[in-house]
Amino acid sequence: GPRMPHLVMEFLRCDPDERQLQNKITAHLQQMGWEKEGNPGTFSLMCLMADQTLFSIVEWARTSIFFKQLKVNDQMKLLHSCWSDLLLLDIITRQVLYGKEGSLLLVTGQEIKLTDIASHAGPTLASLVQRGQELVEKLHILKVDRQEFACIKFLILFNPGGKQLEDHHYIESVQEQVEGALLEYTLCISSHLLGRFAHLLLFLSELRSLSSLAEDYLYCKHLSNEVPCNNLLIEMLHAK
């Protein structure tokens, strides 16, 4: 393979194992009484999965390089402002790396046909799914790999913009280091000078705008009491 920047290897090392995550969350849902082949299309099951995925995201961040050096107050500020980006990135990454066309691969390994989702979804959810699908297709064409996704996760986490951070300079310097590592990596694997890197940064901004819409959608669902009592998900929805 291409020569990999040291930092990119470190990011990969921090990345949780997909199979372990799948087993952990499946076991948790079964413990809560959800049948594996039950009714995975329900909105509340998706919320439970999102909630459990959030736990894994916090655990990933907490044990990751750079983040664990921060004070808890800064850690909370960073996570509060990017949790929905990270959640959406998790879903999109799974589709690009392991998913099949025309279906949504869940964190538990179950698959739902996109046509089934579309037939049950209202206009807002249908449009969110459609836009997410377009992002997945773009990344498929670019053949974005695990290394790049791992870098993007850190770019999302270490976003110093608009927050009252104690360690602002440190967070800014980490962001620069991550960008540098991603740029170096994309230059190694792509002959199109800067093109690939620019595409990935564009994806990042599209992801942020979509996750912001998804967060609004979830918040509305929460206000109408349709989000089941998922501790971390609700807490994050209240954070903004």
Binding site: R62, V72, Q75, M76, L79, H80, L232, M236, H238
Partner: peptide, 18 residues
């Protein structure tokens, strides 16, 4: 406001006391 974020704080803090 801190109470609202009790779970996240707990998750981030839990091993720091070990």
């Amino acid at each position: 406001k801190k109470k609202d974020n009790a779970l996240l704080r707990y998750l981030l803090d839990k091993d720091d006391t070990v």
